[in-house]
Simulated assay, not measured.
Amino acid sequence: MLQTFILLLLQTAYVFGCGTPTVKPDTNRIVNGVDARPHSWPWQISLQVKHGSRYHHTCGGTLIGPRWVLTAGHCIWPGDVYRVVLGEHDMSQQEGTEQIRDILRIIVHPKWDIDHVANGNDLALLKLDKSPIMNDSVGVACLPEAAEILTHGTPCYISGWGNLYTHGPMPDKLQQALLPVVEHSVCSRSDWWGINVKSTMICAGGDIVAGCNGDSGGPLNCLGQDGRWYVQGVTSFVSSRVCNEVKKPTVFTRTSAFIDCILKNYENVMIYYIQIN
């Protein structure tokens, strides 16, 4: 039954237009992190936490269905109040493309343990109170096939509003950076991440470019052979010393390892896709 749901979801998501931004990402000149082309990653969201009477950016996330956001388990703390901002680019100003949604339900992976990050399962699903309006600034990313493994060196892109460098400032504008995939056999070497990286994770980068605080929960965007962008990873952790430590690539929860888990929690995403098509 679940495999049928997976097949239907993939088929209907294709019709819906996942992973096909109206504004094409600029992937030609990426050496280090740079400002992203506005709204070229329309599934990127800002997860914001309420402090006092105001909300502040705390993590990234990915819109994977009309009412569902994928983010990291470590971004969620019991008792905190969150909201999701879609269609965001420059946080220093109102651009008119922003859509704000409250969160109706939070599902953190049952095996996520904040005290044992290296055990994996750093994943959470957020159900929005209502669907955003899909347009040039807001869209959904594609989900990869279950168990898909990317080859070493596959060019992928991290996006987010995280610190520009260790203890550095947070940017106003959405950033992106090229992070080539580091295969598990390399990333798990003793002089890399060793036993801290599991097969349910995906490593990318490992040189002078990395994710940093505030990028957590955001997507690892990888272009598929069909020309669509897939969220192959959810930003999980970097070195505790500095964000861009050599041989310590950014580690992501590998989305393809959790497809069954994701679909079990939101079969109505598939139902929604069918209803609108």
Rank of each mutant, 00 (worst) to 15 (best):
T12S: 12
C222V: 11
N121Q: 08
G194Y: 12
C212D: 01
K127A: 03
I114Q: 08
K111Y: 12
A147I: 05
N213P: 00
M1P: 11
Q232C: 05
V85C: 07
I202D: 04
G162W: 01
G211W: 03
Q48E: 14
G224E: 00
R54M: 09
V186H: 01
A257V: 11
P21V: 01
H74S: 08
M201W: 03
M170W: 04
L126A: 08
G65N: 12
K24H: 15
W41D: 00
V242F: 14
L126G: 05
D260W: 13
V84T: 10
D35I: 02
K130H: 15
W192V: 08
I114R: 13
S239N: 13
T235A: 09
G153R: 07
H57W: 02
V108S: 00
S46C: 04
H109G: 04
D115T: 15
G139E: 11
T97V: 05
E183Q: 13
D122W: 10
R29F: 12
D215K: 07
M1N: 15
C261S: 07
K111M: 10
W112N: 01
G61S: 05
V34T: 13
V231D: 06
D26P: 06
M201V: 03
W112D: 00
D90F: 01
I208P: 00
G206M: 06
P38S: 09
S137K: 07
L220M: 00
P110G: 04
D136K: 09
L47H: 01
T250C: 08
V246C: 05
T12I: 00
G33D: 01
P219N: 05
V138T: 13
V69P: 02
T253G: 04
A210M: 09
R29D: 15
S256K: 10
G52Y: 09
S46L: 06
C18N: 08
I149H: 11
T22P: 02
I276P: 08
L47D: 05
S131D: 05
A146V: 08
S185P: 03
G153V: 09
Q175G: 03
S240G: 15
K127G: 03
H184T: 13
L7K: 15
A177K: 00
I107C: 01
S236V: 00
D26F: 06
P219F: 00
S53D: 15
S236W: 00
G162N: 11
I276D: 13
L178D: 12
F16D: 11
C142N: 08
P249N: 10
C75A: 05
L128P: 06
G153D: 13
G65Q: 07
H167E: 02
R54N: 13
N32A: 15
W43R: 00
E95N: 11
H74T: 04
G52I: 03
A204R: 00
E267D: 09
D172Q: 06
N244T: 13
S46E: 10
H39Q: 03
G214Q: 10
T253P: 06
D260P: 11
A118H: 12
L150D: 04
Y165F: 14
S239A: 13
